[in-house]
């Protein structure tokens, strides 16, 4: 009976050994895994450290560039060890600076000029109404003995041909662009005011308007008496987004000449229409 017992014990011992061995093996592989993880983390940390070092130096050089206006190798050498790296950093800083300056030109409403294939330039200009940027318009101009506009996305009601003749495209391209930009900004401005009315003044009825937004007829209601007032705004100066003429009409014939409505009429002439409406509502002139 000793044998089987021994066998069982032996088997158990063997099993125990196996388990132990397995545990050790597992621990070893665990250790390996941990070591690998640490190695990976160390690499990542060093990578991040050097990226931070690069961006910090880049920032310093960029600040220097902004201060002096022109890149100066000496300043950069003072900053860094004057190695190959500092030269590359200087190039990178100048690159970011130029990109920022070009984008800033676009932001301040400058004309983005791109040279196109052959003899031509593509000009694009941003428009805005007050703080809100609106469309960007483009025109392609063929240069040569006679300058002419070949392609554009200027709305048809902007008198482009007239402006080309009037402002003498040949001699003063900038003056032409300035006038065109006034027309475009005034147009998008009038259209934006109209959008504000539609959004914020539900009680105001829009009777008539046109694509160029140079005429605007509004039906307003006087509170209490339920009297309708027809307000016609004419924008005859197409370079402005304020009306040149305001007409107030009503069945109540005395109303338009009342002091209150004379004041309202004057307000329409000097305040953007959506803001004038807010004031009219506040003072109780309209619903």
């Amino acid at each position: 009976m000793e044998e089987p017992r021994k066998d069982v014990l032996g088997h158990l011992a063997m099993l125990e050994m196996k388990v132990n061995h397995f545990a050790v093996k597992q621990q070893v592989s665990c250790e390996k895994e941990h070591k690998a993880t640490i190695q990976a983390l160390l690499t990542k940390r060093d990578q991040l450290k050097s990226e931070i070092k690069t961006t910090t130096s880049l920032q310093k050089i960029r600040t220097l560039l902004d201060k002096t206006g022109v890149p100066c190798q000496r300043d950069v050498d003072d900053l860094d060890d004057g190695s190959e790296n500092s030269q590359l950093l200087l190039l990178m800083a100048r690159h970011t600076q130029l990109k920022d300056l070009l984008y800033a030109h676009h932001l301040i409403g400058g004309y983005d000029v791109l040279l196109t294939e052959g003899k031509g330039v593509c000009v694009s200009m941003a428009t805005a109404y007050e703080s809100l940027y609106l469309e960007t318009y483009n025109l392609e101009v063929k240069l040569g003995p006679k300058i002419r506009i070949s392609r554009h996305n200027i709305p048809p009601f902007i008198p482009l041909e007239m402006l080309v003749k009037q402002e003498n495209l040949q001699t003063d391209f900038s003056a032409f662009l300035d006038t065109l930009s006034q027309y475009l900004n005034a147009y998008v401005g009038r259209r934006q005011q109209l959008n504000f009315i539609k959004e914020n003044h539900k009680s105001v009825q829009l009777m008539e308007t046109n694509a160029f937004c140079t005429i605007l007829v509004l039906m307003l209601t006087v509170p209490g008496k339920d009297i309708a007032v027809l307000c016609t705004l004419e924008y005859n100066n197409h370079k402005r987004c304020l009306p040149t003429r305001v007409k107030i009409e009503s069945k109540d014939t005395v109303l338009p000449s009342s002091p209150q409505w004379r004041k309202n009429q004057a307000l329409f002439l000097e305040t953007p229409v959506h803001r004038a409406l807010v004031t009219l509502k506040k003072t109780g002139s309209i619903v």
Binding site: H105, I108, G110, F173, L177
Partner: peptide
């Protein structure tokens, strides 16, 4: 580009 832009706009940007 920047030189062209500055000339066309009549506005110089020195720093940004």
């Amino acid at each position: 580009d920047l030189v062209r832009q500055t000339k066309m706009n009549g506005i110089a940007l020195i720093s940004c």
